[in-house]
Nucleic acid binder design. Structure first.
Lengths: 128, 128
DNA sequence: CGTTTTCTGATATTAGTTTATCATTCGTTG
DNA sequence: CAACGAATGATAAACTAATATCAGAAAACG
């Protein structure tokens, strides 16, 4: 059981994660939350992320070759797009993977899950 | 590093990578090559991987939430399957991602590349 | 051979991420 | 409003991955 108090830090951190357009890294969360709480410590960010995960409010997102990112739980099955220019990660609504869970591929691989990341340029970076 | 000598270490490391069924981590490469060269140092593995990449013989493979893996270059566009039981990574021949390079998704995301990892159980682990 | 010079192996070092520690702050409750 | 205790912030410490160092081993080549 986790006793949780309503602190400014916790509210700012959770707010930044929930209102983000995609998963955020620890340093991104720290940077954004620091805008309203300039003395916010990085340890508090790590601690709060840990409790928010235990409470099921956020989930971790693993991207190839990067540190863990975190986003709101309950967004359902979706994937991510990483922009090569602004280096931000965005949630996508589409799932272009044509392999239902339980499919067995040639070679006998029984697929239960998949992780897809798309790369390119986001709309605002394409425009410039 | 222009001059490359044919050492037992280099041959063993390259052989393990080229003959693998999928990309290998540094510790996996070290473990497998150590079977024939018991005194092989981990630094030699890192050094050899670096030169093999510079020569274009191998490429790095990034898997979500894992250290870099390495496999033979020139295997073309493909994806990977990670077995939850034996924890090995296998190359797949299929590409079930229905997004050609250059596609623009809703939201204006211009997709140029993708990275897909499938998860489940491999044939030998399903059998047991 | 024998000389030259790269390569190796053991270890130290660097770099990055995450957790632990602890005095202080501050949210909560009666 | 007082007091208890969880949360914070600064910092140290722990881990892991990757590179640097350097004496000695061993390819390459005349």
């Amino acid at each position: 059981m986790v006793i949780v108090r309503r602190t400014k830090q916790r509210q700012a951190i959770l707010n930044k994660i929930l209102s983000a357009e995609g998963p955020l890294s620890v340093s991104q969360i720290h940077g954004r939350a620091s805008e309203e709480l300039p003395r916010l410590g990085i340890a508090t960010v790590y601690r709060t992320i840990k409790t928010l995960r235990e409470e099921g409010e956020i989930v971790s997102v693993e991207l190839p070759g990067e540190e863990a990112h975190y986003e709101s739980a309950g967004r359902g099955h979706h994937h991510h797009f990483r922009c090569w220019s602004c280096e931000q990660v965005f949630d996508l609504g589409v799932c272009p993977v044509g392999i239902p869970s339980g499919t067995t591929l040639p070679g006998g691989y029984r697929v239960e899950e998949h992780n897809l990341t798309l790369y390119g340029r986001c709309s605002s970076c394409v425009a410039t």
